[in-house]
Design a protein around this nucleic acid. Structure first.
Lengths: 144, 144
DNA sequence: GTTGCGCCTGCAAGCTATTGCAACAACCTC
DNA sequence: GAGGTTGTTGCAATAGCTTGCAGGCGCAAC
């Protein structure tokens, strides 16, 4: 069994173990997110899945992504393109700085947010789910 | 001149000084955001404005809010309701912690983010626009 | 292998928000 | 005040995403 298939199977098992049904749609959607090396959009997932299973509906893609998100198997990020992108959670958490002027996207390590997370827990009794943040602003290379 | 009208006029002047035209639509939309004591949605702004100026179009509301956002006159927040809310910028910046379980919304002072903002500027040469953040997670009162 | 429960899916309708285009009107100039 | 320029607006079409509902199908029990 190749690595990619093994990962997909394992993630599928998670679903089954939690009492969710393992449908072909769910397996294909999960595999598409895992196979993507970068951030993938719902529409891209949809067309990949439909290539193998023509009857899927886009709403199933969204509902499944929502489920996987809730199970922390995928994370969701709004990079400001007017559409949300998804990312397989095991590939490591990171955050994005997005320059509103030049559109540059800078990746940031998740550790940068640990102090904030600690403060929120200590002072506000709030367990923040900081996994895939997008912060807008200006990179200093851009004028004004 | 009463305080509210004075504020609206001043904000309108900002538009004109920057070379934007001061249309009745823009003045009414700006006034609606300023008059709102809390966060107001585009649809609410739309119906308020339409009461005085029946011909406005919802797309004008969105376009104007986008403009005002770019000029830092209003800030935009996604509180996870499936619609974005707007807030007059002069009323002070703050952030929100949103519990995904019970839906509670906790307000957080903006100062909490200053260390992060400093780090991003120093280590990543990025001037983050941290004005109205929404952080999802769980309040510790909620089980599991 | 068969059966049945109830979770999941496809479909269609609906919601929020965006965009292209032609017509309009705010503002400047004279 | 009249006229021209061009930034704005209204309209309609469209995109991305969500939701209600009826029927389908995964899974466990036998």
């Amino acid at each position: 069994m190749k690595g990619k298939e093994k990962r997909a199977k394992e993630a599928g098992d998670v679903l089954r173990e939690l009492g969710y049904r393992l449908t072909p749609q769910r397996m294909l959607i999960l595999a598409a997110v895992q196979a993507s090396d970068s951030h993938i959009s719902a529409e891209e997932i949809y067309s990949q899945v439909r290539a193998q299973y023509p009857h899927v509906n886009i709403s199933t893609v969204y509902r499944t992504l929502d489920l996987l998100k809730g199970l922390s198997l995928v994370t969701e990020t709004d990079l400001g393109e007017g559409r949300v992108r998804y990312h397989y959670a095991d590939k490591g958490h990171h955050h994005h700085l997005i320059c509103e002027r030049c559109g540059a996207i800078i990746d940031v390590d998740e550790n940068l947010f640990l102090p904030l997370k600690r403060t929120l827990l200590k002072d506000y009794q709030f367990n923040a789910d900081i996994r895939h943040f997008a912060i807008f602003g200006r990179c200093t290379k851009c004028p004004r």
